[in-house]
């Protein structure tokens, strides 16, 4: 009953916020934009015939063309899982805790027969549920448009919902901790973005030192950096999991090339070697064990949330 009340309250609060409607609006605009594009064997039609271009890459009748269309879907997925979607979702949910902890509001809630830890986790889950709802709307709309309009029913695309929620939760644990400490939505958004950048740096360095052959000369740094990269949430891994699981042509090409022994050892000049190294790192990220990546990230997340809950329990209001 208490969780239901907090969930409904969270939903009402979200409906009252402009950012919630901005997110829904973005979902509708993206879906509408996708709907305005039609792929035919010989041409791509924009805006229902207003503009056409010859179609060489995205013929829905061929396997290669379909994979090309999947790549477009993956790009949309990147939008959701990447900084645009996740940042907007963090901004949308950042106000939940500061609003609850506002002077004059928190006293009433704490005066009810609900434990502080329970209140904290119910509020957290309510925020997650709302973000899941937004994600379902976005992914659902774009999925249907791809299926109906582009004739590609890309089922792995639906993984965007849990993956976006996972990505969001990696960042949101920091948002909640800062919100509990500062009671400020702005501070919690800003510090979450800083934390996200730090997570990304850790992940980036970990991937580079794991798979980039040009960094082999820094062997003594490899083990500690790779080990350290496994501590914070692996935000970098999430988008690569999505690419791999969706099975678009880009992921397929990257993995195929990375498996070629001659590609690894070839000297292609400075620029060529840089591209090669990037591909090898991307292939490494796509092949990272998702279970250990997600599990270790969730352990970090749980530790941050427990710290936030502990701080919330101890505070005087």
């Amino acid at each position: 009953m208490q969780f239901g009340a907090l969930l409904i309250d969270g939903f009402r609060e979200a409906l009252d916020r402009k950012i919630f409607w901005v997110l829904i609006g973005i979902a509708v605009v993206v879906a509408a934009a996708m709907f305005c594009v039609e792929f035919r064997s010989d041409q791509v039609i924009f805006l229902f015939g207003l503009h056409t271009t010859p179609n060489t890459n995205w013929d829905p009748a061929t396997e290669a063309g379909r994979k090309g269309i999947v790549d477009i879907g993956v790009s949309v997925m990147d939008l959701i899982l990447g900084w645009v979607g996740t940042t907007l979702m963090v901004i949308a949910a950042a106000g939940a805790f500061p609003a609850m902890m506002e002077k004059g509001a928190i006293e009433v809630v704490l005066g009810k027969p609900i434990g502080r830890a329970r209140l904290f986790f119910y509020k957290y889950l309510a925020s997650m549920t709302l973000v899941a709802l937004v994600s379902v709307v976005f992914v659902g709309l774009t999925f249907v448009v791809m299926g109906v309009r582009w004739k590609v029913w890309m089922w792995p695309y639906l993984l965007s919902v849990p993956l976006s929620l996972l990505m969001f939760s990696y960042i949101y644990c920091v948002t909640v901790l800062v919100a509990v400490k500062t009671k400020s939505a702005l501070a919690s958004v800003l510090l979450s973005l800083v934390a996200w950048f730090v997570f990304w740096i850790f992940g980036y360095l970990g991937a580079q030192f794991s798979a980039n052959p040009s960094l082999e000369r820094f062997e003594k740094w490899r083990a500690p950096i790779v080990a350290a990269s496994w501590v914070p949430p692996k935000t970098l891994h999430v988008t690569y999991f999505a690419q791999r699981w969706c099975g678009g042509s880009k992921a397929e090409d990257v993995l195929k090339m990375a498996d070629m022994p001659e590609f690894k050892s070839a000297d292609m000049g400075d620029a060529g070697n840089m591209v090669r190294d990037t591909l090898l790192v991307e292939a490494h990220l796509m092949r990272t064990d998702p279970v250990s990546s997600i599990a270790s990230s969730l352990i970090f997340e749980a530790a941050v949330l427990l710290l936030a809950a502990w701080s919330f329990r101890r505070q005087d209001f």
Partner: peptide, 17 residues
Amino acid sequence: LGRIGYLPENHRYPGYL
């Protein structure tokens, strides 16, 4: 606490409700 009713000073309720 379920048997107590509490009206705090300077209470603030969510304006959207």
